[in-house]
Nucleic acid binder design. Structure first.
Lengths: 230, 230
DNA sequence: AAAAAACTTGACTAGTTGGTCAAATTTGAA
DNA sequence: TTCAAATTTGACCAACTAGTCAAGTTTTTT
């Protein structure tokens, strides 16, 4: 997994010194306590930032969730923004590889099936990470804009080309590759971001074992086969 | 259009006096100035709340965007929460009718095509409203939970039954109606909520005339026909 | 035109927030 | 064990925030 470096533009149209990669900020052989506490803080931060957003989140709350004083939180991270930045980086890190892994020489249906399944599993297992990312983008991506415009755009262009090749070879129906990708992202992340709404509508059944598989089956069925009778 | 009443549980686990319908709060023959200023405030609030979230938004910012003093904003609305509540109500109000309008005796493909087109148009024309709603749900829907669990759930159950009938009649492929609905919501709202990401990836072309139609065509094509070669 | 009603605002308050600092307490290498 | 380095925290501060208040200004009614 390649380290992801995001950020450049700071908040509120100010520029701050970036980028700092996660690995950089965390190199220099951390002590046991450092590893533990940074991890506790990041977990707490993920939780708080993902529900309250950057501005709505408070250091007090993060500290409380992490089980330590606010002062101590600031001993491990220089500022609120740095905590947010690190949590965001950590989140995005795990999302690119599976997308990159879509193989041009594989079977199109099988490649997409695997990717969709993976994304749905992520939504089920790490809903907070998904919401953190969603929140950042909805804010106008103050920290991630450059990443979206460069590395992510390049990657998407690449995979769109792969999909277009598949279509030219008659292996896929002639649809716009970009909108297909957006649709997959939209649908898979919806299960994390709108979890509250889904639970409200489906009730218990959305919390039962196997719900994820059921969702995956339905989503795959629609994307692969559409809804026209067959 | 029926008036929507949302809310019951207040913020931060406290209970406040609700529900107050929009029409109630705004009845009593408003003066010209009242109509104008309430409208200005709500527009400003929609903008600020949709990007900064409830907690991150400030009255100062809303007042500034509305072009008046904070004190005056509080002359028209009793509190920040009431502004948020009203903006949210106003947003949801317009979303139910077209969903309700899905007709059991219509042509399934045509009914869904119309609904999807409508939702995509809303995303293009009122992205802030979409983000406001998304934000509320991501926060755990403190103000809308009851609405989601009652009126919305009932409506969704109703339409899911309609879709199931269509399937039984062989007019649609056998897919789970709920996941189909979620998928439509996810995809259509994605174009508003993740606008920043889409623009970052597609660049200018996403701002050109006709982009909305192009997106609608692609989405409809995939949902209706799937991506298997045909 | 005059008075009442509606509207608008600057000054202020109490509570919150991100961050600092110096003084402990704990940890771990020798 | 010893002691320097690492860790932890309470007290504190300046900036910000939702909301109040009283004093003006504008609009509407008569």
């Amino acid at each position: 997994m390649r380290a992801v470096t995001i950020g450049q533009a700071g908040f509120d149209h100010q520029f701050v010194e970036y980028p700092i990669t996660l690995s950089q900020a965390a190199n220099k052989k951390q002590s046991r306590i450092q590893v533990e506490n940074r991890s506790l803080i990041l977990a707490a931060a993920l939780n708080v930032f993902s529900t309250d957003g950057y501005r709505g989140a408070t250091l007090d709350r993060i500290a409380e969730r992490a089980g330590m004083s606010k002062t101590n939180v600031l001993y491990y991270f220089p500022s609120k923004e740095e905590i947010y930045h690190t949590a965001l980086e950590q989140t995005v890190e795990g999302w690119l590889d599976p997308f990159e892994a879509i193989a041009a020489d594989g079977d199109p249906i099988e490649e997409l099936r695997r990717y969709i399944s993976f994304k749905l599993r992520m939504s089920a297992e790490q809903p907070e990470a998904s919401r953190l990312f969603a929140n950042e983008v909805q804010r106008g991506a103050p920290l991630m804009l450059e990443f979206l415009q460069t590395r992510l755009k390049t990657l998407v262009d690449e995979k769109a080309a792969v999909i277009r090749d598949w279509i030219d070879q008659g292996k896929l129906a002639p649809i716009d590759p970009y909108h297909l990708i957006f649709m997959i992202w939209a649908t898979t992340q919806h299960y994390a971001d709108f979890d509250t709404q889904i639970v409200a509508i489906l009730g218990d059944q959305s919390k039962k074992q196997g719900f994820h598989e059921q969702a995956a089956h339905a989503v795959l069925s629609i994307i692969l086969n559409g809804i026209r009778p067959r």
